[in-house]
Design a protein around this nucleic acid. Structure first.
Lengths: 116, 116
DNA sequence: CTGAATCCGATTGGATACTG
DNA sequence: CAGTATCCAATCGGATTCAG
């Protein structure tokens, strides 16, 4: 791939390369509603589906499922299913998720201090 | 709230109020396409409308205007109009914009290293 | 040159009902 | 409990055209 390829040409930090500009994708992902908040709540520790639902007032089951699937697909969250009488599914941050949460934490901190 | 574990307890729960958590809004804002890239390109220094257009292949004038207006409205970018035969409009980062760009830079860096 | 105005298809998030 | 399946209104980003 050449540097003139428009799909990656605007990547700020890396000239060529296939996946050199993933940060844009991460921002788009985090920009989707609930994603950052889910990440945040999971930083307290493992949580079940229902617990997340309770902590995210207003989220619909469909959207919560979508978000969790996305988080798992990106390797930020693990999904552990426990087959039992009442089924249990536990979600927890991966190391990668913890790292990303750290960066988000800085944004939170900055946002607080930069409030008008 | 008693900061039993984290120091950002007030943010994640978004009640029906206006905007209780600025970081969420910032992420949503940055998640919109082009915004982060515009911020990034402006970190090189002041740029004119056309120069930004050239550096953002595929962006439409409408979207570029929208994005720039948003960036200005949020105090991240300044807009300086020069009345001349060919009108000139210069866009540049504010201190706030520089600060936010720094945080984004960390995401870029993390994204690079976590791709492998 | 720097936009504003319109139109449009695609995507999004949400409400609701239903299932293993 | 932990989702899936539909349906839907709103929003988004892009293309195009026009204007100061």
């Amino acid at each position: 791939m050449t540097t003139s390829d428009s799909s990656f040409a605007q990547c700020p930090t890396r000239p060529p390369g296939p996946e050199s500009c993933g940060a844009e994708d991460w921002l788009a992902f985090l920009g989707h509603r609930w994603n950052a908040m889910i990440l945040w709540h999971l930083s307290e520790g493992s949580l079940r589906y229902g617990a997340l639902q309770d902590r995210l007032p207003g989220i619909s089951p469909k959207v919560l499922s979508e978000r969790l699937a996305g988080l798992v697909a990106r390797g930020l969250v693990t999904r552990q299913e426990v087959r039992a009488a009442p089924p249990e599914v536990h979600y927890a941050l991966t190391q990668k998720g913890i790292e990303l949460r750290e960066i988000i934490a800085q944004l939170y901190e900055w946002a607080e201090n930069s409030e008008a």
